[in-house]
Amino acid sequence: MLYTVQGIVLRTTDYGEGNKILRLLTREAGKVGVMARGAKKVKSRFGAATQPFTCGEYVYFKSSGLGTLSSAEITYAHNGLHEDLMKSAYASYVAEMADRMLEDGEGSAALYDQLAAALAAIEDDKDAQIVVHIFEMQMLKMAGYAPILEECVSCGSRTGPFAFSAQLGGTLCPLCLHKDAQGIALPEGALKLLRLFTGVDIRRLGATTVKSETKAVLKQCMRAYMDAHIGIAWKARHFLDQMEKYPLS
């Protein structure tokens, strides 16, 4: 059967001497795998359309197993993500999340739109860390692991100030803070942003200005939560850490 989809290239794998296997997140069919025959060849008609982060219309034939790419037309090449190493690292992380947290056939039009918006926002110089945290929250909601942020995860109290417990799954009130020795102090500004992340549409994200101290707390919370509940050793996140530790001169 022939399928026509709007897709984003999440990852490519070389196969044989001249072929590539693409992992696409599509609006219509969730995550799919397709073989792009001859894509590694210099004059391949699929060369540009099979680069990571590329958004386009992909036509493929599939009866069982992997599909076979028939044609591809680029909508957004996102060249800016390839030309800037830091932007590429952030883009790789959101793409890796979609790839590794979704099984074949999983996904939705809404998630596709959020990933497309995240890539565009990173390329357009919006705060990449904030974009990543919003997408992390989108993926957590999709997986059914969204943190509880409106009340104490232990007793249900709505009286703060709150701390954040990655292990227990959300915020802790002062009376329950002793239940997690690793609880992270959560300033009101950081809590408001975490709550905002659970429902914001990346397509409507405007310019953001977040204090460096607040961003450090957000990063600590989201890292701890992703590690506690998803447990994936993110390759792109490790690369981001190396970039921050040893910045380019």
Rank of each mutant, 00 (worst) to 15 (best):
A228C: 13
G189P: 06
Y93P: 07
D227E: 15
A116W: 08
I21W: 01
A49D: 02
T12D: 11
L115S: 08
I122V: 15
A98K: 03
E73Q: 04
A163L: 00
T50S: 12
A98D: 03
L240R: 01
V131Q: 03
A109T: 15
A163C: 09
A143L: 13
H82P: 06
H133G: 08
S88F: 10
W234V: 05
D241C: 13
I232K: 02
E83N: 14
H238F: 10
H178F: 14
D125F: 07
L218V: 13
A190G: 09
D104L: 10
L186Q: 00
R158A: 10
E244W: 13
G144T: 00
G38Y: 05
I130W: 14
G231I: 11
G206V: 02
I232D: 03
V5C: 01
F61M: 08
V59Y: 07
S88L: 04
C221S: 05
E57C: 08
A89E: 02
A143S: 12
D113G: 09
S249I: 14
Q6T: 05
A49K: 04
T4M: 01
L85K: 06
T13H: 11
A121K: 11
F162N: 07
G80Y: 06
Y90V: 09
L66R: 10
G56W: 01
P187I: 10
S70K: 12
F135M: 13
R23M: 04
K31F: 04
L240D: 04
G231T: 08
D241W: 13
Y15P: 07
S108W: 03
G105K: 02
F197M: 08
S165P: 12
G38K: 04
A233S: 13
K215A: 08
D125I: 11
N79G: 14
V34Y: 03
A166D: 03
K219Y: 02
M1H: 14
D124K: 14
G7R: 00
C176G: 11
H78N: 02
V210Y: 00
Y60Q: 00
G18T: 15
R237Q: 15
H178M: 12
A181W: 00
D201C: 02
A143K: 15
S157M: 11
L85T: 11
E213P: 12
I230L: 15
D201T: 00
A118Y: 08
L102H: 06
E150K: 09
K192M: 03
A228Y: 03
H229V: 05
K245C: 10
E17S: 12
E244Y: 00
A109V: 13
K179Q: 05
R223M: 03
V132E: 03
L140I: 07
I8R: 03
T12R: 04
P147G: 01
T209W: 11
E17N: 04
W234Y: 10
G47I: 07
L81I: 06
A89V: 13
M222W: 01
G231P: 06
A121E: 08
D84R: 04
D124L: 14
G183K: 01
Y145T: 07
E96W: 07
L175Q: 15
L66A: 08
E96V: 08
A118V: 10
I230A: 09
Q129M: 09
A118Q: 05
L81P: 03
K235E: 10
K62F: 05
K219N: 12
A185R: 05
E83K: 09
K62Y: 01
Y3R: 05
E188L: 08
A216Y: 00
D84N: 14
H82W: 10
